[in-house]
Every structure is written in C-alpha cells, then in structure tokens.
Write a protein that binds this DNA or RNA. Structure first.
Ligand code: MN
Ligand code: MN
Ligand code: MN
Ligand code: MN
Lengths: 217, 217
DNA sequence: ACATATTTTTAGCTTTGCCTAAAATTTTAA
DNA sequence: TTAAAATTTTAGGCAAAGCTAAAAATATGT
C-alpha cells in the first residue's frame, strides 16, 4: 500500500462509522482535502486491489482486507501519539501532525516493539482506543457532554475534534482526560452548559459540548 | 525537500567524502540504485533549488544549504538507529532499513526531543558520529583493520559496510563496537589477518579487514 | 412528471521521479 | 592525433496522484 492509499483507507474506515451504507465520493474527497474526481480515481484503484467494493454512484465499502489495513494504520498512528506524549514531552495538541507521518512506517517489529516499550497502551492521548496486534479494539461506552444529565458527575475520557485549536481551548480551561466534571446547568436558549471542575465553575458552548466524551461516575 | 531529494542529497554528501572534486552522475546513480539519466534529472532539479552546483559533464558539489540538509537527514537517521537499538531491542543489523524511512520525518521538536530522550548520543550503533542540533560532528580518528600493525591492540569503533550480511558475520564472530582486538599475524599471500579476541583466535579475510574501523589502545 | 440541482464519473492535463534509447561530450589509448 | 570507449545529457515515455471542466447519473421540488 502506498502512503496515499493508506490515507484513503483510513479515511474510508472513519467515514464508515457515520455512513453505514457506503462512503460517498464527496464525503471522502472532503475528508481527504482533495476533489471528488481524485477520490473517484483512488476508489477505483482500491477496488481493483480488492481493498473495497465500489458501486458507481453509490459509494465505497471496505473489504476485510481494506479494514485490516486501515486498522493497522490507526494502530500505528495512536501508538506513536502515545510515544510522543509519554516519552518526548509532546502535548496532546502537537502529536497528530507528526503521527500522520509516522503511521506510514510499516514494520511489524517496529510497531510491536513500540507497543511493548509503551506498556501495551489501550488508549491514545485523545482517549481513542488503540487496536492490538490482532486488530481488536477495547470498546468503551462514552457519552457526549451535549447529552449529559444536569446534576450528574462524569469523567472526561475523550474528544471528538482533535484539532490543536480545540485541545488548546480545553487546556486553557483545565480540561483533560481524567478530569472530573459535574454538570450544573443547561441553558435552553443556546444549549450552553455550566460545569463544575473541582472548585471552579466554567461555561462551555454547545459546540464544545458536542466534542467532549464522558463516562458517568 | 521531498523524500527523493533528501535521499539524493544524502547520497551526494556521502560520495563527496570519496570524490572530492564533484560527484559524478554514474557514481550517484549507482549509490541511488537508479539510472544515470535519473541522476542527471535530479541533479538539475537540486541545482535549480540551489542545493548544489552542477557543471555539466563535470559533476555535482553540494552548496552550504545542501550540506545542511544532508546533515540533518543523517542526524535523524542515526538518532533513530540509536532509538531502535537502545529502546526497541533491534540489533545493529536490523536498524538501517527502518531508519531509512524514519529519517524523512522532518519535525525539529521530534528530533530534538528524541535526541534528549536518548541522552544526546554522539555515535550510532555502527560507530558513525551523530551531528548535533547545529550540524557539528565529533570527529574521531579511526584506523581501518587492513592497515593495522601486527602485535598492536585495538578497540573496534566502527564499520564501513553496514549491510545485514556483514554485521551478522561480525556477530557470529563476537565482534562488536568496543571489542578489543589484538593483531597476531598478517598473511602476505591473501592479506588475511589472525586476530586475538579475548582468549580465542580468529582469522578474517582482507574484505572483512577493509570494513572494520579501530582505535589504537 | 419533469425540470433543476446535486453528485459522481470521465476526459484530458500537470508534476514528480523513474525508465530506455539516442545524441553529445569527454576520456583513453592506439 | 584520432578513433574507440566510456560517461553524461537529452528526448520521449510511463505511472502515481493530483487538478479543472464537461458529461452522465441521481436526487429533489413543484
Ligand atoms: Mn491523531
Ligand atoms: Mn489520537
Ligand atoms: Mn543506517
Ligand atoms: Mn548507522
């Protein structure tokens, strides 16, 4: 698999969670920051290689081989993200870009030794699960903050948006993985939320609330 | 710099040690495992980018910018080789191939944090010096085994050939960096050498002797 | 139902980095 | 000094991965 092919497979894999009956050309092009015609070209190539099935005008669906390849790339990406944070003093908003490159280095020994060196981590710095050598994820139930209950207490376990902008916003509000959050009030007007973090209170907008994952405690 | 450009710059840098007055197209093509016409194409492109000067039919010479770029790639390569050996249980004959990929990930933070994480190593697993952040090498005098004196004692400090085949040969004869070697006899017929390693004696051919670097002790 | 809008594909071009074959230049050696 | 040999460059192509513009197919709204 070339670098471009791996990136497309990963994108299709992620989009399949959202578009269950085939990933559309436009959605794929947008995810890849390319044009629809480029997405069509690549989808055809990946179909030729039996990494996915493509019904023209209908969308693409990963084959088992395609899924395996995508999961391998995701495993590498997330392991490197852990490495960068745990060993090289990167913050969670700095790792993604570098991991986008590291994820394409395809050496089983490298990845498996890295996994062992890191102590077989199961989650990356953004709370995303890391598939094991066999491609198995440890799935955990997560609730999005926007759908939380007023009065309940939660632990922050993940983010949806992993952009540097959003992560820095969270940093500046002292929200990170493991942070305990109590929902104080939900404002019906704009769906903003008042949260208690330890002894301080903050207000977050709906767009923040839609990107933060929690576990009830 | 693209991946291909970086690899050419590195190759030219290495060849310049040997061909002081300009690297020839043929030598470059051979080093890069491409054809002379491809080397010409790339040399022209790198000349356009002011990474080197090229006199047609005469050869290529790195500019200061080209040298800096090449040294950066070499720094990354050698730091990753140290990482693989020290942290991920790679042996010295396994690291080169993976490092060929890792060396192209261009992030100052990544490289400098890796350097710090490894404790600012000055030599890679093959005894080659690692340039620092400013591109400075710590140069050490080395003697090739083929030119050693009979009766003298040396420490092994490097290898010229870093192929897996040669390194595995050294492993199987218990020769590694730091090994103490006494030269017992030089056979005039084929220039083979009898060496004392601790309490055992071995005979090595001239081609081995030309690829092992020593320091007199 | 049908015209319009949207999505997807096709056609044709570009750039990068490689190739082969032919032409140009330099080197070597008679 | 020249002819042959070796080296280097040029010319012309190819495949990957992108693009724009046009054509084809599908979806939508009245
Ligand atoms: Mn990431
Ligand atoms: Mn992540
Ligand atoms: Mn190496
Ligand atoms: Mn090395």
């Amino acid at each position: 698999m070339t670098l471009a092919e791996e990136n497309y497979l990963k994108a299709i894999y992620h989009l399949e969670q959202q578009f269950k009956n085939g990933v559309s050309t436009n959605a794929l092009a947008e995810e890849m920051n390319t044009k629809a015609s480029s997405a069509t070209d690549m989808v055809k190539k990946l179909a030729d290689k039996n990494m996915l099935t493509h019904i023209p005008y209908q969308g693409a669906t990963l084959s088992e081989a395609g899924r395996i390849c995508a999961v391998k790339v995701i495993r590498r990406h997330r392991l490197w993200e852990v490495f960068l944070v745990e060993k090289l003093n990167f913050s969670w908003d700095e790792v993604h870009e570098v991991a986008e490159h590291l994820e394409h280095i395809n050496s089983d020994k490298l990845v498996d030794e890295l996994d062992a060196f890191l102590g077989y981590p199961t989650y990356d710095p953004h709370g995303d699960p890391i598939p094991d050598k066999e491609g198995k994820f440890t799935y955990i139930e997560k609730i999005v903050l926007a759908k939380s209950e007023v009065g309940a207490t939660y632990k922050c376990i993940g983010v949806d948006d992993t952009s540097s902008k959003f992560l820095k916003y969270l940093d500046s509000n002292n929200i990170g993985l493991g942070t305990i959050i109590k929902v104080i009030h939900k404002e019906p007007f704009d769906n903003s939320l008042k949260l208690a973090l330890g002894d301080s209170e903050i207000v977050v907008s709906q767009s923040v609330a839609k990107n933060l994952y929690l576990k009830k405690i």
